[in-house]
Lab assay of single mutants.
Amino acid sequence: MALNTPQITPTKKITVRAIGEELPRGDYQRCPQCDMLFSLPEINSHQSAYCPRCQAKIRDGRDWSLTRLAAMAFTMLLLMPFAWGEPLLHIWLLGIRIDANVMQGIWQMTKQGDAITGSMVFFCVIGAPLILVTSIAYLWFGNRLGMNLRPVLLMLERLKEWVMLDIYLVGIGVASIKVQDYAHIQAGVGLFSFVALVILTTVTLSHLNVEELWERFYPQRPATRRDEKLRVCLGCHFTGYPDQRGRCPRCHIPLRLRRRHSLQKCWAALLASIVLLLPANLLPISIIYLNGGRQEDTILSGIMSLASSNIAVAGIVFIASILVPFTKVIVMFTLLLSIHFKCQQGLRTRILLLRMVTWIGRWSMLDLFVISLTMSLINRDQILAFTMGPAAFYFGAAVILTILAVEWLDSRLLWDAHESGNARFDD
């Protein structure tokens, strides 16, 4: 018995066209964080690309023209004298008006014999932002004059995390709450300039795509075929072959399989920071003279006294001054041990922890910024005066060393310790 099946006739004509040209192939790229070699397709503007294995951002879609970056830099340069030299806060102490600005706080630190601690604050609040705007201006002028731009481009990517104007702005709020127990506070004209400078700096850093600047100024022929001998440069993120001198053909720094002496430098910085954190938390970090009496505060006791007036601000200072430094030390110690013992479990967790400490590390400088600003506000000789204690130097040095330890660690070593050939990683 035959089955009668109805015929289905399409209502619209289906047209099949042959592909007349070869589909576009992607360029081969190595991930600078996990060293995976993959094919990167062509990316349009405002599109980002991520590593298929570790999800690290390979290409950032946010990109401004150099002219727009230069305009932002010149605007920031105009704001800087007002943000640093004009009063941020006014207080009335014992019937006398006192003005506080950024430069005055750094000068008070240096004047009291601790120039190293003052230079830490100076670099993060004044030096690094000033280098940022002058570097962008150098790129703008240098591109037109045919100057060598490689050193500036190499420095810009590392400079971003040292620009800490946003953290200093939080420190202004913390210092205001600490001082309000002794005097009446009012915002100064410099505060508005400083807030504007923070906003412009944040926007500029978020749109400063150094890798795209490398592509514009020093374009290189990408690798179009897969080759395990391809290496990625950690300076400019170019994937290719080393030249005859073993250097990256684009930025001219040595092109090595792994960062040289990464573990040794990381261990040295980490152990030194552990040693410095002990006096930083045991010795007094601030000293207040009130009517001839002397009151010393460690980091913890200062947080407890701050909690009596504002528990939320005390929580912020606790996280930045105690929780973050010790968390960074514990995480980095764990990561280094996992590399030495070739741990194969929990790779995803370790990668996330490394990215976390990379982002939060700079916030530990908050305590030094609060001390710097408070020193310029309260300084009335023996009637009422505020000065920093010996722990300030140890704390600042420990924070900087932990930042350097994270920067010096080559994250690809975590993958080397893991089993080879993993296309995915999980716990």
Rank of each mutant, 00 (worst) to 15 (best):
D181P: 01
S119E: 04
M388N: 12
I14G: 12
N4K: 10
Q220E: 09
S308E: 06
L149G: 07
I378C: 01
L306H: 00
E215N: 07
W92Y: 04
F386C: 01
K342A: 13
A392N: 05
V406T: 08
A70F: 15
A314V: 12
L414H: 06
T239Q: 03
G113W: 06
L205I: 15
G293K: 12
P325T: 06
D381N: 06
K328T: 00
I96S: 08
A405Y: 10
R355P: 05
I311T: 12
Q55Y: 09
G85T: 09
A223K: 07
E211T: 10
R144A: 12
S273G: 08
F38T: 11
G190W: 00
D381R: 02
T402E: 03
I403R: 05
S262A: 07
V313G: 02
H90N: 11
M76L: 15
C343R: 14
W92C: 04
E215M: 07
A398Q: 05
G235N: 04
Y218N: 04
S372Q: 04
R68G: 03
T15M: 12
L336H: 06
A71M: 05
W359P: 01
Q186A: 15
Q180P: 00
A314W: 04
E86S: 14
A73Y: 07
T239E: 00
E42H: 09
I172L: 12
I14K: 08
I339C: 10
W363V: 03
Q295T: 07
C31D: 01
E419K: 07
R245A: 05
A307R: 07
V102T: 09
Y28E: 13
L290D: 00
N310D: 11
Q7I: 10
R350L: 10
P325N: 05
P6I: 07
P24R: 14
F395A: 01
P254K: 02
G396I: 04
S48Y: 15
V370P: 01
M155W: 03
L300P: 02
F38A: 05
P129L: 05
T239M: 05
L255V: 02
V133W: 02
Q104G: 07
G421R: 11
G127C: 04
C124G: 05
D426G: 15
W408I: 03
E215V: 14
V210A: 10
L290P: 01
S206C: 15
T75H: 07
F395G: 01
E211M: 14
T5C: 07
W84L: 09
A272E: 00
A405G: 08
G173P: 02
V324R: 00
V133H: 02
C248R: 00
L40I: 09
N291S: 15
R380V: 05
W162K: 01
I403G: 02
S338T: 13
L154G: 02
E21P: 13
W363E: 00
F393G: 10
L145C: 11
A18N: 11
A18L: 12
L306P: 00
M388I: 06
L208T: 07
N291P: 08
I91K: 01
I8N: 10
E86C: 06
D381Y: 10
S308M: 08
V331R: 01
V195G: 13
G85P: 05
V163T: 03
Q55I: 12
S135P: 01
I311M: 11
R258N: 03
G142M: 04
A71F: 06
D27K: 13
V317M: 03
L79K: 01
L373W: 03
R260T: 03
W140N: 04
L368G: 04
H184D: 13
D181I: 01
R380H: 02
D99Q: 12
A223V: 09
V210M: 14
G142F: 05
M72Q: 11
L404H: 07
W359V: 12
L270P: 03
C51L: 00
L401A: 03
Q55W: 13
A307K: 14
A137F: 15
V174L: 15
R68A: 02
T5D: 14
Q382M: 13
W267Y: 10
V163N: 06
M147C: 10
A312D: 04
H261P: 01
Q186F: 07
E212W: 12
V189S: 10
S206D: 05
D166V: 15
M356R: 07
G142C: 10
D35N: 13
I288W: 00
F217W: 04
G142Y: 01
D227N: 13
T334G: 09
F318R: 00
G85K: 13
D63N: 15
I274M: 08
R260V: 04
S193Q: 02
M120Q: 04
R245P: 07
F369Q: 03
L132V: 06
L145N: 04
N148K: 04
V357F: 02
T358H: 09
H237C: 05
S262Q: 03
V313Y: 15
T239C: 06
I360S: 03
A307I: 06
L154W: 01
R62L: 13
I339P: 06
A73M: 14
H90S: 08
G95D: 02
T11C: 12
G302L: 02
L169W: 05
R231M: 05
L347V: 14
T298D: 05
P52R: 05
L139S: 02
L323D: 00
I322K: 03
R144T: 13
Y50D: 15
F38E: 04
S376G: 04
T358A: 09
F326R: 00
S206G: 14
I288H: 00
L278F: 12
